[in-house]
C-alpha cells in the first residue's frame, strides 16, 4: 500500500510516497540516491550501507517505515560547500586510489565516516575489523585500508 512518509535525507526533509513493504534501499534509490547499491540484499556485502542517526546500517535489512524521524545520510550528502565538495573520507579514497569498480565504495566511505566521527583511532588490524561488513569483489582491500588509515589511523593527529 502506498503511503506518505517524511524522511530526513542528507539534511533535507523529503515527503516521499513509498510502499510500507519496502526496504530503505529501494526507497532511497527511487528518489535518485543511487550511491546506495543493491548487492546481496541480505546484509552480507555492505554495498547498501547508509548512516542512520550517524550509525552505519545495511539499508536492505531496514524497512522505510522505521526511518521516520531519523537522520539518513548517503554519500550524496557528504560533499558540501564546507568541505569544498569533497569530504575528507572521499578525498582519502581518491588519493589512495581505493576504488576499482566502485560498487563497494559508497558503503565503505560511510562506514569510515562513522568511524571518523566517533573519534576512535585504529591500527590496520582494527580497521579490518571495522570494515568487515563490506565485501570488495575486486579484492582491492589494501588500498581501501590505506585510505581508511589516512583518516582514522593511529599515527594521524
Amino acid at each position: 500500500m502506498l503511503k506518505i512518509i517524511k524522511l530526513n535525507v542528507n539534511g533535507k526533509i523529503n515527503e516521499i510516497s513509498y510502499d510500507d513493504r519496502e526496504s530503505l534501499t529501494d526507497t532511497l534509490r527511487n528518489i535518485g540516491l543511487t550511491s546506495v547499491k543493491k548487492g546481496c540484499e541480505a546484509g552480507e556485502c555492505g554495498a547498501c550501507t547508509v548512516l542512520l542517526d550517524g550509525k552505519a546500517i545495511n539499508s536492505c535489512l531496514y524497512l522505510t517505515s522505521w526511518a521516520e524521524g531519523k537522520e539518513i545520510t548517503t554519500v550524496e550528502g557528504l560533499a558540501t560547500e564546507d568541505n569544498d565538495f569533497l569530504h575528507p573520507v572521499q578525498k582519502a579514497f581518491v588519493e589512495e586510489a581505493a576504488v576499482q569498480c566502485g560498487f563497494c565504495t559508497p558503503g565503505l566511505i560511510l562506514t569510515t565516516t562513522e568511524l571518523m566521527n566517533s573519534g576512535k583511532k585504529c591500527d590496520r588490524h582494527e580497521i579490518r575489523e571495522e570494515i568487515s561488513g563490506h565485501l570488495c569483489r575486486c579484492t582491492g582491500y589494501e588500498n581501501i585500508i590505506n585510505a581508511v588509515e589516512k583518516v582514522v589511523g593511529k599515527d594521524i593527529s
Partner: peptide, 9 residues
Amino acid sequence: IGSPQIRNI
C-alpha cells in the same frame, strides 16, 4: 555477531 552494520541494529 555479524558485522558492524548488523551490530548497530
